[in-house]
Design a protein around this nucleic acid. Structure first.
Ligand code: FES
Ligand code: FES
Lengths: 143, 143
DNA sequence: GACAAAACATGATAATAATCATATTTCGGA
DNA sequence: TCCGAAATATGATTATTATCATGTTTTGTC
């Protein structure tokens, strides 16, 4: 449903939400280990997220990745889109060039409203909110 | 959201639902062309579906693929599962080894009910029903 | 029974996604 | 101002998915 890359990215961002701040940055090797993701690979993903302003970073000694207050207001959806693009989620399920109700594929009417809900739900989930739940041990990060 | 293979398979089965019957089988080249899918590839997928008893086939001259009355009662979900397996749809979104409400990942509570609805919806969509809509020109197959 | 038409089976190639490796830039601190 | 620590950039390798190609079996027809 979500690509491996997207899952990795979400885990990393949530990890940063819990374990980093403006003055306590964390470097990739200290992210990769606890979330159990190949270091060189998550490094690439983090750079991409950084370039898309989903997360923040600074170079050099005492540098690393972190979430600014602004970063914490981003949604899960924005991360999904940053990594795998919007189309994966909104394309027609049978690959009609455009998904709309005027020339729908046979699955459209049955599924499109649920899919919208799903998207909306992803859009409403803010990183900040999710990290609260992790801190409160109401939710858990894998590995 | 669905793999290319799954989309191809769904298109092919719906095409058969509209254009085949017990005594009017259609061979892969006459399926591949109208649904615009590589012939050798859809051939493999059709064989898989046939082996899983989602569709029917017979060999030799005057042979081909078709849907029996029973085949028409299959759901979209059964096709998705036949092609890409169930796990793709039910796995934890962040890859916890098991997805459940007792040790949920941060996305679980927000998403799992919508995801169940989506699965249920796929399960309730029967091939027969969808083919009615295509015949009534209320829905359209791509390419 | 011979023949040809079809599905079936198997393996080879190509495209994409995931992983690994290495060089370059930036920046804090001695 | 020099050094090393970090992100950044780029490219190479591997694994998975999609695509292509070719041979084998079944079966209706003559
Ligand atoms: S037209 Fe196919 S999902 Fe909307
Ligand atoms: S535990 Fe992650 S989706 Fe259910």
């Amino acid at each position: 449903m979500l690509s491996k890359s997207t899952k990795y990215a979400l885990k990393a961002v949530l990890f940063l939400a819990v374990n980093s701040s403006e003055n306590s940055k964390v470097m990739v090797k200290d992210i990769a280990k606890p979330i159990n993701v190949p270091q060189a690979y998550i490094a690439k993903l983090l750079q991409k997220l950084s370039k898309e302003n989903i997360i923040s970073s600074s170079r050099g000694p005492k540098g690393g990745f972190y979430l600014s207050e602004g970063d914490r207001q981003h949604s899960v959806l924005s991360i999904i889109i940053a990594i795998e693009g919007e189309k994966k989620l909104t394309n027609c399920l049978l690959n009609l060039k455009k998904c709309n109700e005027f020339k729908p594929c046979p699955l459209h009417n049955k599924i499109s409203s649920i899919r919208s809900e799903l998207l909306q739900s992803f859009g409403e989930m803010k990183i900040d909110e999710l990290s609260q739940e992790i801190k409160a041990a109401q939710a858990f990060l894998p590995l």
